[in-house]
Simulated assay, not measured.
Amino acid sequence: MCTLYTVRKTRDEVAQTFRARRPPVEPNLPDDILPGAPGLVVREADGERILQSMVWGFPMRFATMKPGSKPKPVNNIADIAKFPWKPLAQKPQSRCLIPLTSFAEPEGPKGGKTRTWVTIKDQPIAAWAGLWRESDEWGPVYSGVMTDSNDAIRPLHHRMPVLLHPHELDQWLHGSFEDLVAFQQRAFPNELIEITATKDLWVPKKTPTPVSGQS
C-alpha cells in the first residue's frame, strides 16, 4: 500500500495543472509526504476547483487499541463500496484529487529494503483519486483510493493507487458512484508506468503528529 509520495512541483504548477485556485495561505509541506502529514488536494467548492492542504489519513480508532489511544491516520482506501467509505464516495462534494509526482514502494530483502519510485509517463503531475472530509481531531483530512496492481507494479506490491488520466478528472469528481467503482476495478496501463530503483534505504519513519487547521 502507498505510504510515501512526493509533489516536487511549485504551487503554481500544481494549480495550473488542475485549473485550481491556490490557497490564500501557502502551506509548508514536507518533501516526502507520509501518513499523518499535510499534503495538497484538489477539491471543488461552489463550482470551482481549489487547492487545499489537509492531513493525509482519516483519524480512526480500532477495537484492538487501548482505551484513550490517539487515532491512527488511515491513508489508503481498500474498497469504496464498503463502510465507512461508500457514503462519502456517493457524495461528489466529498471527492478529491491528490496531486503527486511520484510514489514509492520498498524493494529488496528484509533489513535492506530500498526506495523504488513510480512515476507516470507524460504526466509530470499525476492525479490519485481520493476522498476527504472534515474531522474533529485534525480538521480536513483525505485518503487515497487503492486498486489491484497492474503487471508493471506487481513485482513491488499487489496494490497501487487509483491513478487517473487527465481527461478523467471531472468524471471522478462528478461521476456516478458506479463510475467510481469502475475506476477502482480497472487496470491502469502498464506502458504508462515508469519505475526507478534507488539505493536509498527504506527507513521506516515515525508517523507525524497530525496538526489541525490546515489551509
Rank of each mutant, 00 (worst) to 15 (best):
C2F: 09
C2T: 10
T3N: 13
R8T: 10
T10E: 08
D12Q: 14
D12L: 09
D12R: 15
E13Q: 09
T17C: 14
F18Q: 07
F18D: 12
F18H: 06
R22V: 07
P24G: 13
P24L: 13
V25S: 01
E26M: 03
E26G: 00
E26K: 00
P27T: 07
N28W: 10
L29G: 01
P30W: 11
D31H: 11
D32E: 09
P35D: 10
P35R: 02
A37K: 07
R43K: 12
A45C: 05
G47N: 03
R49C: 05
I50E: 15
Q52L: 03
M54K: 02
M54G: 01
M60N: 11
M60E: 15
M60I: 04
A63Y: 09
A63W: 13
K66I: 01
K66H: 06
K66N: 05
P71W: 03
N75G: 10
N75R: 01
I77E: 10
A78T: 11
A81S: 15
K82E: 14
F83M: 10
F83E: 15
P84H: 10
P84L: 10
A89S: 13
Q90C: 02
R95D: 13
R95T: 04
C96R: 07
I98M: 15
P99F: 04
T101Q: 09
E105N: 00
E105I: 01
E105F: 09
E107T: 07
G108T: 09
P109D: 12
G111P: 02
W117I: 00
W117F: 11
V118M: 07
T119M: 02
K121V: 13
D122F: 03
P124M: 07
P124D: 12
P124Y: 06
I125W: 07
A129H: 05
G130W: 06
L131F: 02
W132N: 01
S135L: 08
D136Y: 00
E137D: 14
G139S: 04
V141L: 09
V141F: 07
Y142V: 02
S143E: 05
S143M: 05
G144Y: 06
T147S: 07
D148V: 09
S149K: 00
N150E: 11
N150K: 01
P155M: 14
P161I: 11
V162Q: 03
H165P: 00
P166G: 11
H167L: 10
D170R: 14
D170Q: 15
L173E: 04
G175E: 13
G175C: 05
F177E: 06
F177T: 08
E178Q: 15
E178R: 06
L180Q: 13
V181T: 14
V181A: 06
A182N: 15
F183K: 09
Q184F: 09
Q185G: 14
F188P: 08
P189I: 08
P189G: 07
E191F: 07
L192M: 08
I195T: 02
T196Y: 13
T196D: 14
T198M: 08
T198S: 11
K199V: 13
K199P: 00
K199Y: 05
D200R: 08
D200G: 00
L201W: 01
W202P: 11
W202C: 08
V203K: 10
K206R: 14
P208F: 04
P208Y: 10
V211D: 13
G213Y: 02
Q214G: 11
Q214R: 06
S215A: 13
